[in-house]
Design a binder for these strands. Sequence first.
DNA 1: AATGCAAATGCAAATCATTATTATTTGGAG
DNA 2: CTCCAAATAATAATGATTTGCATTTGCATT
Lengths: 150, 150
Amino acid sequence: MSEIITYKEVLNHKGLKNTRHRNSILELLETSTQPLTADQIYLALVNQKISINLSTIYRVLNTLVENGLIIKTNTVSDNKTLFELNSFEHKHHLVCMECKKITMVDECPFEEYEKKLKEKMGYTILGHKLEIYGVCKSCREKENNGKSIV
Amino acid sequence: MSEIITYKEVLNHKGLKNTRHRNSILELLETSTQPLTADQIYLALVNQKISINLSTIYRVLNTLVENGLIIKTNTVSDNKTLFELNSFEHKHHLVCMECKKITMVDECPFEEYEKKLKEKMGYTILGHKLEIYGVCKSCREKENNGKSIV
DNA sequence: AATGCAAATGCAAATCATTATTATTTGGAG
DNA sequence: CTCCAAATAATAATGATTTGCATTTGCATT
């Protein structure tokens, strides 16, 4: 836990009960460097000798999304739903097409662009999602040992 | 058909047979102002008194994606796959959170940003996807007739 | 510490989008 | 017109996610 505030307090404040499952899921997402699928969470917890049902994971994830503690995303390549802790910071995803790893980037070049869209299209802009696809350093190096396609 | 080239020719060139189903799906996507789900395509065709099977639609869509004629996307809100004609132009999606309508925008402010990411993260950038969320003009106006939340 | 009750969980079955299988039909080359 | 590979229909299978219902648990109150 990187904050002084514990999940127990956060959950309480939202009127949610402080259960071991909610805590272990939140803790797992906190230590993870990237968004996880429900299934990945399930496997990770089972690995930690925690007995939990997959449907419970889905239910916990959904309540946490509804209460703004975590964020739901989905990938373009495969059709899976990913969950990550809501850091309340504006982040974008850098997705490696080879190893599928996701890296977070926090720089965002958009204020200008959004203003333009607002004027041109008459939209009220609420937010955006940006995913950038590429090949990460280590995958590119692996490939260069063989033939270089990219 | 907005081009001199017919779909028949395009399909031929790709070594694909020119079937009525492929044509009706391509024509439907051409007239559509926004990406469609397999199911929406199915309903639209049935509406046109065209007898077609849903699995055929999926199969046709997948071959068309493989051959670069159409593009696969997916929505953040619900877990559905969307298909749109590949215009071979770089476009982004402007998504209305009220009516879920998608508008295309062609301006893209990214060359600079991608260069930066390449240097900083060591990534080879292949492409990106940007979705912008907001409320479209007509939805905002509808809302203002009641109470204005947004 | 014991009680009560709503909320949370486990388990199994249901649902939904998508894919695979197989028999039948069709486009189009010859 | 004939033939065959490719395309399609119909149906079953799959995999992710949701739901119904019985049981358990958190926690406020006694």
